[in-house]
Simulated scan of single mutants.
Amino acid sequence: MIEFAQLPDDHPDLSFSPLLRAARLTLTYAADEGAIALTKTKAFKRSFVHWAAEHFDWPGRSYEELFRYNKVLNEYDFPPLELLHFLLVALKLGRHYKGEFRLTKRGKEFSQALGALFHELIPFYILNVDHASNGRFDDRPFGNWDVWLNVINVEVENGASERNLYGAFYGEGTDGANAGWREISAFSHCVLKPLEWSGLISVHDVDEAGRSARMCFKTSLWRSALKLDTDDMLARATQH
C-alpha cells in the first residue's frame, strides 16, 4: 500500500522537491503577473521559459547549461517546465484562456499552501502520469508502483546503483551485467526519474570499479512523505 503523508507547509523536507519548487514558483508568478502568455500552440512563451530556466534551479539543468547550446529556449527545450505545464492544467490549478495561462481558484489556494500543493501534485505525477510517453523509445518496464516503491524502500536504504536496482526487479543477465542499456534506460526513465524529479531520491554519478555508475539515495523527503508496507522490515532491521 502506498500512502503519502500530508506535510505542513513549513516542513523543511519539502525543499528537496524540484518539481514542487517549480510549481510554487510558476503559480506565484502567474498570481503576481495576472497570467502567463502562451504561444499559438498553447505553450508558455519564451519570456517565461527563460525566467523559469533561471529561477527553477533544476538539478543538472542550470541556466548556463540550458543556454550552452541554445540562443533561445522554447518550452519543449526545458522538459521539466513542459511537464509542469501539463500537470497544472490536468490538476485544474491553471487553465488556458484567450492566449494566456491563468490560475484557477484552486491554483490560487494551492500557491499559498506548500504542503497541500505537494500532496496534490506529487502523488498524481508519480502514480497517474504515463512516464513512458516522454521517453526515447516509449518502452515500459513490467511492474507497478506498489512493488517498485516497496522494494526500492529496502534496496536504497543505504544507497544502490541504478544497475543493481534494475537487477533487483528483473534479474541479472548471463554475463552478470543485468539487461541491455535500453531496458535499464526504460526503468530509469519510468521509475527513477519521477522519484528524482519529485525529490524523493537523489541520483549521483560516481565511479564504480573503474566505470561510471549512477547511485541512488533516499532523501529526507522520502522518509517523511512516504508510508510503505516495507517500513516494518526496515524498522526490524534497525532494531537488530
Rank of each mutant, 00 (worst) to 15 (best):
E109N: 08
Y69Q: 01
L25I: 03
E109T: 07
R102I: 09
D57N: 14
G94L: 12
L91A: 12
H55Y: 07
V89D: 03
W58D: 01
K45F: 10
L81E: 12
T39D: 05
R24T: 08
S62W: 10
R102Q: 09
L83S: 08
R61Q: 14
A35G: 05
E64Q: 09
Y63I: 13
E109I: 04
F86W: 08
S62P: 07
Y76D: 15
Y97Q: 15
E100V: 00
F44T: 02
D57Y: 15
R24N: 04
P59I: 12
F101V: 12
F56S: 02
T104P: 05
L27F: 06
G34Q: 06
T104F: 00
A31N: 09
V49N: 09
E82P: 01
A43W: 04
S111R: 11
R46P: 07
L84N: 01
R61A: 15
H55K: 12
L93E: 00
S111P: 02
E75F: 00
L84R: 11
W51Q: 08
F78C: 03
R24H: 05
W51K: 10
H85T: 04
K45E: 15
H55L: 11
E75D: 12
R102C: 02
A37I: 08
E75I: 06
R24G: 03
L38E: 04
A30V: 06
L73G: 15
D57Q: 14
R106S: 08
P80F: 03
L25K: 09
G94Q: 09
Y76H: 15
K105I: 02
W51C: 04
Y63K: 13
S111A: 14
F44I: 08
E75C: 12
K45S: 13
H50L: 06
L38G: 03
V72K: 05
F44E: 02
A43C: 06
L103K: 04
K71F: 00
A37P: 00
K92P: 04
R61C: 02
L103D: 08
A37E: 11
D77S: 10
F78Q: 09
G99A: 13
Y97C: 09
G107H: 09
L93N: 05
F110N: 06
F86E: 06
P79R: 05
Y63E: 06
L25C: 00
G107I: 03
A52E: 02
L81H: 04
L73D: 09
R68M: 07
S62H: 10
F44P: 00
F48C: 12
Y76K: 15
K105T: 11
H85M: 14
R95C: 01
K108C: 02
A30K: 08
L88C: 03
G34H: 05
S47G: 12
W58G: 03
L73K: 15
R46L: 11
E33G: 04
L66A: 05
E64V: 06
